[in-house]
Structures are given as structure tokens and as C-alpha cells.
């Protein structure tokens, strides 16, 4: 069976500076992977390289989503193919109601996949269900995308988008940053509902805390632009004890 995400010896740079140095990672459908590591180890870079953010350039190696070469696809094609990035700092889109945005995104993806668009009543119904799970006020969805949202509200909104779009591969970039404990529980609950045998989830985080709620199948330690250690969920606990210091020196 083809892996959902297959990264082989990936090297990538920003403005001529190499950040990823021979990255290898395989995520199969149904798995939840956690990528942990010190600040500056290139965790966010990985998520941007995979999603195709302008300025992030693959120089060597490959990243395949369900066998398809990501480097050959535009940002929106990658999204339609099922790659979703939950941003560490979700962007504001002034003047565009969240509901409008959700409809535009969902139907753009469906159209690209040759699927039927979702009707407005169906969409509203679905969004209402999701908002309930995430303990969000529908009033918030009438407001412009992320404008004036608190840190916690942004992460909820991000999770709602992810749940609505039902991607094949979810990448969560430091979703726990800026969340209080209650919001963390609510968001984790949303993510856990997305766990399925057809879907892969990559959780990028600095702290073990999030993994108390989203239990990973595999934990990786990333340092200086590549994975330096892989283990089970107990590895996260160990890191909480020992910190990243030894990996930083190892990488250096």
C-alpha cells in the first residue's frame, strides 16, 4: 500500500539558506505522528515546504502525497488533493465572513476534484454541527475570517475548517500555542474526531502537553532540519524530562 505521505531525503531552502537537510518521513493512513523539536529546528519549515508556501524551495529529494509528487502541484492543487495545514498563526481576511470563506474553500476543492458543490443549507447544517463540537458561537462565523478573534478562537476556527474540509493529511503546526487548557481540550477533541483509518495526522509541537490529549502512534525528534530519533508515544514523555539539549548538541 502506498504511504499517505512519503518524504525521501528532502532538502529545502529559503532565500538560499538550507533549512531541511535530508528529511525522511513516512506517514501511513490511519496514523498520528508527532514531530517534536527545539525552536529553530525547521518544524514550521517542513509544513510550509509541504503546503507549497512561496519562497520555500525543494532542492533535492521528494515529497509524495498518496504517491503524487507535491513539488509538481500548486498550493491549491495540494489542498484539493487533501493536504491541510492548520497554521500556527492563522491569517486574517478582513471583510470576508467566515461562512463565506468556508463555502468558497470547500466548493473550490470539490470543484477541482470533479465533485458536486455542497448546497448552502447542507453547508450551514454541517458547520453548525462542527461549531457545537468545538464550542463555537455561530455568531463568530458571521464575522470576518479570524479578524478580532482571540488566539483560542483562531485555533478553534482553524480546526473547524479542517473538520469541514475533511483532508487526507492534516498537518497541525504548533496548534497548542496560545491555547488555555480548556481550549486545548476542545481543539484536541475535534482533532481526535478526525482520526480515521483513511487519514493521516502530523502534529508539530514543542511541548508534550498537546500529546496528552492527542495520543500519537509515532513520535519523531527533529533537529537541525531532519529527524534524529523516532519512537513510540513514550518518547514524548522522555523529552519532557530531558529537554532537547542533547539533540541540539548531537545535531551540531
Amino acid at each position: 500500500m502506498t504511504a499517505l505521505l512519503e518524504i525521501r531525503d528532502l532538502k529545502a531552502e529559503i532565500a538560499g539558506k538550507q533549512i531541511l537537510n535530508g528529511y525522511d518521513l513516512t506517514v501511513k493512513a490511519g496514523e498520528v505522528h508527532a514531530i517534536m523539536g527545539p525552536n529553530g529546528s525547521g518544524k514550521s519549515t517542513l509544513s510550509y515546504v509541504l503546503s507549497g508556501r512561496p519562497g520555500y524551495k525543494i532542492t533535492e529529494g521528494q515529497a509524495l502525497l498518496a504517491g503524487a509528487d507535491l513539488s509538481q502541484m500548486s498550493v491549491d492543487e495540494r489542498a484539493a488533493a487533501g493536504l491541510f495545514l492548520a497554521f500556527q498563526y492563522p491569517l486574517e481576511v478582513p471583510g470576508v465572513a467566515t461562512m463565506t470563506f468556508l463555502r468558497a474553500a470547500l466548493n473550490a476543492q470539490r470543484k477541482k476534484r470533479g465533485e458536486e458543490e455542497m448546497s448552502s443549507p447542507d453547508l450551514i447544517k454541517r458547520v453548525k454541527e462542527l461549531a457545537k463540537i468545538l464550542d463555537m458561537d455561530m455568531e463568530m462565523l458571521r464575522r470576518p475570517v479570524n479578524v478580532g478573534f482571540s488566539g483560542g478562537e483562531k485555533k478553534r476556527a482553524e480546526t473547524l475548517q479542517m473538520m469541514l474540509l475533511e483532508p487526507k493529511l492534516c498537518i497541525l503546526d504548533e496548534t497548542d500555542s496560545g491555547l488555555d487548557i480548556d481550549a486545548l481540550k476542545v481543539v484536541s477533541n475535534g482533532v481526535n474526531q478526525l482520526r480515521s483509518k483513511d487519514r493521516g495526522i502530523v502534529v508539530i509541537t514543542h511541548y508534550q502537553r498537546l500529546l496528552d490529549y492527542i495520543t500519537p502512534d509515532v513520535v519523531h525528534v527533529q533537529s537541525a532540519g531532519r529527524i534524529v530519533r523516532t519512537g513510540g508515544k513514550e518518547l514524548a514523555l522522555e523529552l519532557e524530562e530531558t529537554g532537547y539539549a542533547r539533540y541540539q548538541s548531537e545535531a551540531a
Partner: peptide, 20 residues
Amino acid sequence: FYCMQRGLSQEDATALVVNG
């Protein structure tokens, strides 16, 4: 980039931002 990551083409994303 954010809009496109959600599936909108560059043209659609620009139209959306401008309309906003």
C-alpha cells in the same frame, strides 16, 4: 497563501480578498 492553502486558486483568492 492562506486562502490558497484552503483550496482557492490565486484568482479566486485575490477576488475574495479584494471583495473583502
